[in-house]
Write a protein that binds this DNA or RNA. Structure first.
Lengths: 193, 193
DNA sequence: CTGGAATGTCAACGGGCGTTGGCCTACGGT
DNA sequence: ACCGTAGGCCAACGCCCGTTGACATTCCAG
C-alpha cells in the first residue's frame, strides 16, 4: 500500500457516480428491477453504459447501491406511550414523500429475491429494534414489528405503487388519523381487543 | 355463420388451454410478469411456445386470462355489524391460501401497468360495493374500502411476497385476532379515536 | 514537459426474449 | 374410406438485454 492518502479527497468521477445513482433510483422506482435497463439509466445520466459496469460491477451491484435505505426511526422511548402510533405513521409518511428509494425497493422486492431480502432486513431489524425498547419479549416484539410493517407497507403499496384512488386522494393528515390508532394497537395492544 | 352449434361442446384443446393457464399462474405468481417467460410456461405445460400465442394472442393476453380473479366477497349485510372485520379478514385469508392468482396479481402489479389497473378495479370496485351496502355516503365508502385494501394487501404482500418472518410464522387465527379489529374500525369507525 | 493513471467512448459479443409462418399429424363428420 | 380442419411442432426472425475489451481523451504528479 502507499502511504495513507487523504481519506476523502474528492475524485473527479464522483459527479458521474452520483448522476448514475440518481438515474438508477428514478428508473428502478418507476419501472422495477427488470424493466429498468442499464442502457436507459446510462442515457439518463448522459454517460456510456459501460461506465455503470466500471463503477458498480453489474446490475445487481447498481441496485444494491441505489436501494440503500435507512428508515431513520426516531427513538421511541422519548415519545409519550399514548402517541407511539401517531409518531410512527407521521414519521413514515414524511420519510417517503420525497424519497423514491422506498418505491424502488417496493417495486423490486416483488420480483427480485435480493431486494426482498433487503426489505426483510430493513423492516424486521429496524422496526423490531425500535419496538424492543418497550416490549422485552423478543417474540412478541417481532410480531408487533411485523404487524406494523404489514400495515405500513400496505399503505405504501396502495398509495405509491398501485395508486388506489381513495388512498392517493387522502391527505397525510387523514391517513394519520385513520392509521395511527392501528399502529398504536399493534405496538402496545393485545389481540382481539 | 353456420347454424348455432352446441354452446358448450368440449373442444379437444381444452386440456391444453387449461394446462397453459395453470402453468402461467404458477410462473406469474412465482416470478412476476417479466421474469415469467412464455417459453418457460410452455415447457411447464409440455407444449410448444407457439401454442400459447395461438390460444392467448400474446403475453399480455395470457396474463389477462391467468389473472382473472374474483374476491367472492360474501354479502356483508347478513353479517352481524360487530363481526364485519373478522368476517372480512377470515374470508380474505381463506380466499388466498391455496389460490395463487392473487400472488400473481400482486407481483405483477408492481411492474405491469395493466396488472395494476386490474388490481385497482378489483379492490376499488368489489370492496367499495360491499362497503356501500351500509355506508351510503359514496366518498366515505370509497375511503373505507381503500383503507381495508391497504391493510389487506399489506398483509398479503408481507406474508406471500416479501415473506417477512413474523408474519409468515403467525397462524391464520393469530392474524385474524390482530387484524379483525383494524378492519372493523376502517369499516364502521371514525378517524382518530 | 511528460508519462501514466483516471475517465470516458465505441463497437461488438452471446444469449434470451416475444413472436411468426410453414409444415406435419391425426381426429372425426360424412 | 375420405379429406377438411383443428391441434401441434419446428426453425427462424428481429430485437434488446447485460456485459466486455480495445481504444481515445483528460488530468495531474514528477
Amino acid at each position: 500500500m502507499t502511504a495513507a492518502t487523504e481519506p476523502t479527497r474528492p475524485r473527479r468521477s464522483d459527479a458521474t457516480r452520483a448522476a448514475i445513482l440518481q438515474a438508477a433510483r428514478d428508473r428502478f422506482a418507476a419501472e422495477g428491477y427488470e424493466r429498468a435497463t442499464i442502457r436507459a439509466i446510462a442515457a439518463d445520466a448522459r454517460i456510456d453504459p459501460s461506465m455503470v459496469m466500471r463503477y458498480y460491477g453489474n446490475k445487481e451491484g447498481l441496485f444494491a447501491a441505489a436501494a440503500e435505505f435507512d428508515l431513520r426511526l426516531p427513538d421511541l422511548t422519548t415519545v409519550p406511550p399514548g402517541q407511539l402510533g401517531e409518531a410512527l405513521i407521521r414519521h413514515f409518511l414524511s420519510r417517503w414523500e420525497g424519497d423514491e428509494t422506498l418505491a424502488a425497493l417496493l417495486r423490486a422486492a416483488s420480483t427480485n429475491p435480493g431486494a426482498a431480502e433487503r426489505m426483510r432486513a430493513i423492516f424486521a431489524d429496524q422496526i423490531t429494534a425500535a419496538v424492543a425498547a418497550f416490549d422485552t419479549d423478543p417474540a412478541a416484539a417481532a410480531r408487533r414489528a411485523g404487524l406494523v410493517a404489514a400495515q405500513t407497507l400496505g399503505l405504501a403499496f396502495t398509495r405509491y405503487i398501485v395508486q388506489l384512488p381513495p388512498i392517493v386522494t387522502m391527505t397525510p393528515e387523514e391517513l394519520i388519523a385513520w392509521v395511527a390508532p392501528t399502529l398504536q394497537r399493534y405496538l402496545s395492544g393485545v389481540p382481539e381487543n
